[in-house]
């Protein structure tokens, strides 16, 4: 009977794990219920619902996106938006009680202060909210209600936009202009700079 050779571990696996991976970190960060509530409330103030657009907290921005794009504590390389689990959670914990207790005007006030006093943390919250929100399927549906978004389908492939991209039709280039031939290149002096 032929023997079965079990291949050794493929060293490429290690390099893939160290590389930036599509869809964020394979093992999501786990937030407490309180952190999820606070992050959802923050996202809802950054992009208020209305005009046919759902609230960020209702489309899984925190559960499906923040969890994958905050860098877990055991991962060495920190990539965009440069939010590290430990520090990020601590910053959320520090504001959660006050934020959740406040009304909408109070929350806006707190976010304005955060933007001024902790621009890095605020920038992480905004990048995660904007990046996550506008990639959620429910938001893509809302985008299609905009005149400029009626054909928009989020992920570029597999469909593409070949059927609906404006073509050349009657637009014809003027056919003017010329080029300097090799033998016609001469010394050229320009105006002195002021």
């Amino acid at each position: 009977m032929a023997s079965v050779v079990i291949p050794l571990e493929d060293p490429r696996d290690r390099f893939r794990a160290d590389s930036s991976q599509l869809g964020g970190n394979p093992v999501p960060v786990v937030f407490t219920d309180r952190q999820i509530a606070a992050l959802g409330a923050i996202a809802d103030e950054l992009i208020p619902a209305g005009d046919g657009f759902p609230a960020p907290s209702s489309v899984g921005v925190v559960e499906e996106f923040f969890t994958r794009y905050v860098t877990p504590a055991d991962i060495v390389v920190n990539r965009f938006p440069y939010a590290r689990e430990t520090e990020f959670k601590a910053a959320v914990d520090a504001l959660a009680d006050d934020f959740l207790a406040a009304n909408s005007a109070g929350r806006v006030n707190q976010l304005a202060n955060l933007e001024r006093d902790e621009p890095d943390f605020f920038g992480q919250l905004r990048a995660l909210t904007y990046g996550g929100y506008y990639s959620r399927p429910a938001v893509l549906v809302a985008l299609r209600s905009l005149p400029a978004g009626r054909d928009y389908h989020g992920a570029p492939l597999p469909r593409g936009y070949d059927q609906t991209t404006a073509d050349w039709d009657d637009l014809i280039p003027p056919g003017v202009g010329s080029y300097i031939r090799t033998t016609d290149v001469v010394r050229t002096t320009v105006k002195a700079r002021p």
Binding site: S19, G23, S135
Partner: peptide, 29 residues
């Protein structure tokens, strides 16, 4: 499968796995 075109997250990946700048990508190569 490493192209982002089929993923909901294709846009944030412009700043990460498909960042133009190797100092941002920070991949082993």
């Amino acid at each position: 499968t490493q192209f982002p075109h089929f993923h909901d997250e294709w846009e944030i990946e412009k700043y990460r796995s498909w960042a133009f700048d190797p100092n941002l990508r920070q991949n082993p190569e």
